[in-house]
Design a binder for these strands. Structure first.
Lengths: 115, 115
DNA sequence: TCAATATATTCTCATATAGGCATATAAAAT
DNA sequence: ATTTTATATGCCTATATGAGAATATATTGA
């Protein structure tokens, strides 16, 4: 037949670049729709519609507070993606890049505390 | 205006479930089109078309060998996704699941060597 | 050369949106 | 009650594209 709905699949949901931008903002902090509009500079309905998709796939939740609707990320819902990515890790740089990065980070933090 | 092409974006490319299935197979080993058809049981043109998209975004490369075309995964191309996912790791299970797993692994290997 | 095999391409159709615009809804403030 | 503020919805259009069917292309073999 034709294409399939992206609105019920986490993988497709993050396939849309604007939705990734919204996610990147909401990772930083819970925000209202107009706060997001201020940041991304898209028309409010565009933001609301993408949020609606993200809400349907449960990547975000909505919390009402007076006139505002506060959107918050639900990182657990993105786990399937992380898990799907595991299958590639064995190909990557000695297979332990992330660990290296993390250890380096720890070291840097240690030095910071000592200084 | 309207939607954007997925054919030039790694994130959108893996948004399509059938393409993820093909990737999952090609991670295991380089395969020809008909080998893939045998595995997934879809019409050959369907497989070829999805491979074409994956080739355009460079997730796979094609190598000709006689009448066959062997497709091989290019894991580096999926790195941007892995990197994008990093931003969520701090939310997950003590924030250091993967590291914990790795350290445990190291320890086990140490014990093995000692035994 | 001709047939067989392996794969890509073209054409068509159905459908899923992304975004624009206008408007509806809902809560708060006056 | 009326207005203002915050957000969602509905309608419309353009376009992307997944899949089916038929066909084209390319390579090997007889």
């Amino acid at each position: 037949m034709a294409r399939l709905k992206t609105t019920h699949d986490v993988f497709s949901a993050i396939g849309e670049p604007k939705r990734r931008v919204l996610i990147e903002q909401l990772v930083l902090k819970e925000m209202s729709v107009n706060e997001l509009v201020d940041v991304v500079k898209w028309p409010q309905p565009v933001v609301s519609k993408h949020l609606s998709v993200l809400k349907q796939v449960r990547i975000v939740t909505e919390r009402r507070q007076g006139r505002f609707r506060l959107y918050r990320i639900q990182p657990e819902e993105l786990r399937p993606i992380q898990e799907w990515m595991h299958q590639f890790e064995k190909f990557w740089g000695g297979s332990m890049d992330q660990l290296d990065a993390y250890l380096n980070n720890l070291q840097e933090r240690d030095s910071d505390e000592q200084s």
